[in-house]
Design a protein around this nucleic acid. Structure first.
Lengths: 188, 188, 188, 188
DNA sequence: CTATAAACGAGACGGTACGTCGCGTCTTCAT
DNA sequence: ATGAAGACGCGACGTACCGTCTCGTTTATAG
């Protein structure tokens, strides 16, 4: 099936060091200051080893995130029994994602990565951001599914992104309003 | 009180040439390829003249957009009498914003600019993207105002942004579903 | 007596392909652009097969030249009966050695090889350049031998090299003057 | 005459630092290990500042040598009254030119530079190597001039170059034989 | 009417990062 | 054991821009 090839195979040590270095540097400094040379330096690896396997820094980063080397905690919703409240809390956490004290907002950096790299962009919406939301959101919407469920997830996550881009401060209450608006008022 | 000074005043010709060049280059090549040197070259201006008046390329761009040197047409909603449909159409146009035939999506570039420059980011949400939406959206929501109106606008525009970042194709129908989800089902 | 060994012995096909590739690339592009990777690629051979048998590209080249894969014609003097004239002609040919139409002077490349590789350098003087000259030069000098003969050969070949390095144009007449000066005026 | 230009002029400090760095690195490590990056690093200068003014490392070096930042001492012949002996001494010094204890022969490096850079090559013969020789050589040859004088200088200097390339050891006596052969036997 | 000084076009400067090439070593698989 | 293939860490290549800093020129005020 796979065409046979001779020669050395890909070094897993190098691959892993690169992804770790990319995740760490991204978390510390943000996407703009993330450079291929910096990743190579930190990983103790030649630049060519990065270019051999990834077309751009964005794709390195996308792979690092998908392997949960970044954003691990963010990928689970809390569960207090109240789905609407849990969603609002999770959105608020997403909004406040911070790397280092002086770091830029991590969410904003993630958006920059998605804007600059099709690979990151492609995965951001479904695999990274919206995925954790789906189950509980379906419950909160009274069993919605398909296009409407997707639209609601896009609206919630997108709303948070837009607010993060604006640099204004939004709190938990604002996120509650967002949830109420998109999901509809809470039943009583 | 104003401290007296001699010498020539700011050249409007230079200012205008810079903003035009920035708008044109952004539309043609996107935010990542937008450079101060490129703007200066295109505008026939010294680099220092840019640095004297703006702190970064993002701020130049923000000013250019605000002066309607870019995105002019996008800033008005169509008016067919059906507010929900008009909003969906406008969102779809926003999603499809293209610069040149082969250009990257312009919306994605706008997001990159907003992620990279606080000035651009600050203005993007309220002054550029959401502003045209407000009046008609209030009508569509049956007279909503304040936080709920803002939340709905964020959800709609943010949803489109998230979808643009994902590089999937979304059509007018998808935008209609988005509107229905956020605004609520159409009354009959 | 011969120590027994298992496994394949040195592949003559590989050895020959490497020397041919080195000679061809040297003739086409000069010494500076001659690379081990290029030789391996052209010869259809792994890099290691070159490194296994030669310590540097200079040594590969030296061997290629010595096996007459390069400079074959240059290694014989013409014979018109007039030794002084034959020497001048041969020196002029040496000076004009060209690889491809647009190639750098081949002699200059040879000098670069000699300067960069002790193996090539060691052999250039005695085995490659001066050797063909010796017999006829001895005749032209009236039976000189030993140190004086060697000195004369060095002076002639060295003079041509210096002139080639200078990038000026020298013709057959100039070479005649060189011969007259070193060998002494023609007897009448 | 000269077309007027505005803007900053060339920094003499940078120019001088670059030439000094190139001369020092060449003397210490030879031509092959001389790199643009190394020169820039040593000179405390951006790479672009080198590329702005010189097309290649060879041209930087040529300029450094011509300004006597290198080989200063080598450019005068000793004067003991005996022109033939002085020439032989000078040739022997040329042959032995060394940079550092472990350095490659400096003359060989100079030849590599000349082979690799037309600018260096062009100047090497007339301005650097042969020039100091001319006056005394004319005397030794009994008033020779023009083409014959040039041919003799080429033969002497070229002979030394060829011998240096060969990596054999040649001493003062060998140089005396070279002089005798080229200049003709000493008169008595 | 000067002088002064700011704004301007131009672009040199010390840097950082880019993406590519070649080095010499090492690893895999096939013969 | 050899050989083809090629991944690896490394370091230099030549280019593009960064943001700062001169230059020489132009032009609006202040004296």
């Amino acid at each position: 099936m796979a065409l046979p090839r001779s020669g050395p195979i890909r070094s897993q040590a190098a691959r892993s060091a690169i992804l770790d270095a990319a995740a760490a540097l991204f978390a510390e400094q943000g996407y703009d200051l993330l450079t291929i040379e910096g990743i190579a330096r930190r990983a103790g690896v030649g630049k060519q080893t990065i270019y051999r396997w990834w077309p751009s820094k964005g794709d390195v980063l996308a792979e690092a995130i998908l392997e949960r080397r970044l954003l691990g905690a963010q990928r689970e919703l809390p569960d207090t029994g109240d789905a609407r409240a849990d969603i609002a809390t999770w959105l608020s956490d997403l909004f406040t994602l911070r790397a280092s004290p002086d770091g830029e907002g991590l969410l904003r950096s993630l958006v920059a990565a998605a804007a600059g790299s099709s690979e990151t962009g492609r995965r951001l919406r479904t695999e990274i951001l919206a995925a954790p939301l789906m189950n509980r959101l379906a419950v909160a919407m009274g069993g919605a599914a398909g296009a409407r469920l997707e639209a609601a997830a896009d609206a919630l996550v997108g709303g948070v992104i837009l607010r993060a881009l604006s640099r204004e401060d939004f709190g938990l209450d604002d996120m509650r309003t967002l949830v109420d608006t998109v999901v509809g008022p809470a039943p009583r």
